[in-house]
Design a protein around this nucleic acid. Structure first.
Lengths: 210, 210, 210, 210
DNA sequence: CATGAATGAGAATTCATTCAT
DNA sequence: CATGAATGAATTCTCATTCAT
């Protein structure tokens, strides 16, 4: 902590400490919520994980729900930003898709708690954050759809492909397999597994036409 | 109803009413738990949905956890049984797979609450039923793997296919897209959507090699 | 408790126990809230005073606020009902007013906690029960106003009297003096003190014109 | 302001800013406490209303209770001082009483939050300031009693009047009606309303004996 | 079988107060 | 003087479970 603070306090960083604490809490929250689910996680566990007092959590966040919303927003927002960048750099739809799938899988591999939280909230109704969840979800799906459409326009994938459907299918597939293979303390390396997804999708998209 | 009961209550049918009440409660439980998640659902809501008293729920089930376990066991067990039958009747691996995918999707379409419960518990640790969940999950995956292997042996799908991976991917894809398309009050018909999955998988499996 | 129950349980009194418990809780709540004020009173104290578990309080009342609202509604409602009866039986406006003042004072004397709660909530805004409080208050004031108007019509009080004003003044005077004289463990008897109020009001109303 | 401060900060004016901040906080505190009650008001709200930091509030006041005590002491003290002056200037008991009633009503009209706070604390036990509250209350009542006694001695009010009782009644009546008529965004002017009180009291005091 | 009142452990949230800067 | 992050004890409210009837 000492080091971090020194590094930051140099340049008029007012509120740097507050931001750091927020991040600390958010990190702890992802871990606990990912493990136990939103309702199952307790604020007590979160603050213990973060090593701060309970009051502090409520100083920084209005409620447990706000923490969760913040996690989802941040996580999905970052992912979407990266998708945008990947799309911009890629020289074709399919290569953008490969990049996105890879990025998505890696993110979940590196942060399985976030993945779990994400997947278990995806279909839940009546949460305070359901609205922003849907927005983020649609943004992510939209970015994938764009690249599928692009690939189609480029003539690089089968014209019969239903981009709306496939976008959803890709997300589900990546989510499910990633989470599955993290738990399998299996011999399966992250790379091998990502290779598998990409291979699967490529064949599904290109198909027999050639 | 009164008459029927009297007529049969003499014999083994002694527990007929009991069985009916259990089913009533279980139905209510899937609905509520599917909507709010296991921890989020309360026994009060469940019994209200079922229209019975709380005492009665505890007469039939030892605990809320037992209800949930029962739901999962029954639902996944039925599915597995049907998979077994489909596998037995199919004349080839791929046709068995198509049957399974179809059956799985239809089941979720007809009971989205079960689907939601299933997906949200899939990656959760530390539940009393985690063990039986894993078993059921493995049984389901095993049945799919078998058919993938069969298809491979039959030379009907690409030899490079990793059956372990694909079994998981299929489950995730079907789960995700089904749940997504139920929520979309969209114009997408169940049939059209299932067609999409099957088409996607067929191409992924057969690939360019032809 | 045993005796009460026996007395009640005889005649198909289903829910009699529930009603008794509600009353028990309400009694305890008036005491504690009257002593410490609404915000100052804790549910813990209330249930301890009632000798029941905390859960039970929330089984019977949705919230602490609902308890308070219930107290106010019941207390003010009873008072208003009695005012109606007094008005009906009285043979003149002034005699009705005397009856009301007396009744009001006695009620507070016998239940100072209710009086305190009442007076401290009278001017508070933004409570969940503020609405029903206003209604009850207006009902009470209206009944007093009616009798003032009647007395005026009967020519028994000065014609310049502003009935709107006086109704409020009477309530305030009775409330304040009653509460003051309860606390004074003084030698002042309830009767002597009520006599004082009535004398004061009579002169104010009849005045010098005679 | 900067210049002024520099010019005077040398001497006794050292605490000029401090005094200003205290006043700022006290003003904010009356507003919030009058609105929400003592226990209902939070230090956070008070400092926000005052536009200063929480630390500053605790620099100037030892505790929230001290703020409240200070408000009550100041407000009641000022009122008492004014009563003393009114008594000294008045040429008769009744005219002093009229002056006091008027002053009291005006004070509440101009600062309804103080009035609300006052009335809601009047009957509360167990506050740290309950002692000084009682003292102030008694001082106020004493000053009124003195003038009632004087009026009686002057033969200007009925001899049967119980001065102890009436002092309390006057305070309650003024408090209640003032607060009521402030809330009524009614057409009732402050002057007309005060006229009403005075007229009521005069008749009550002089009565039929003439 | 069936009811619903009752319990108590635990969870979310609030808030006066302290303290490093 | 001034700030606002941090604390922890107290408080409201929830909920699975039990039990008398």
């Amino acid at each position: 902590m000492g080091r971090v603070r020194e590094a930051v306090s140099r340049q008029g960083e007012k509120g740097g400490k507050a931001r750091a604490t927020r991040a600390l809490l958010l990190d702890a929250a992802v871990k606990v919520i990912g493990r136990k689910g939103y309702t199952g996680a307790t604020v007590d566990e979160i603050v213990e994980e973060a090593g701060v007092s309970k009051g502090l959590a409520y100083y920084h966040f209005k409620s447990k729900a706000e923490m969760a919303e913040s996690i989802l927003d941040t996580g999905m927002g970052e992912l979407a930003d990266e998708f945008v960048e990947i799309a911009a750099c890629a020289d074709s739809g399919p290569s953008a898709l490969v990049g996105m799938i890879e990025r998505f899988a890696v993110k979940i591999f590196e942060n399985k708690e976030f993945g779990r939280f994400f997947v278990s909230e995806l279909w839940r109704e009546g949460r305070v954050w359901s609205g922003s969840m849907r927005e983020n979800e649609e943004r992510l799906l939209g970015l994938i759809r764009d690249q599928l459409a692009r690939a189609k326009a480029e003539g690089l994938i089968r014209p019969e492909i239903d981009v709306d459907f496939e976008a959803v299918a890709l997300v589900g597939m990546v989510l499910t397999t990633s989470l599955y293979y993290i738990d399998e303390k299996a011999a399966v390396s992250k790379e091998a597994f990502i290779e598998n997804i990409i291979d699967f999708v490529r064949h599904a998209n290109v198909g027999t036409e050639q």
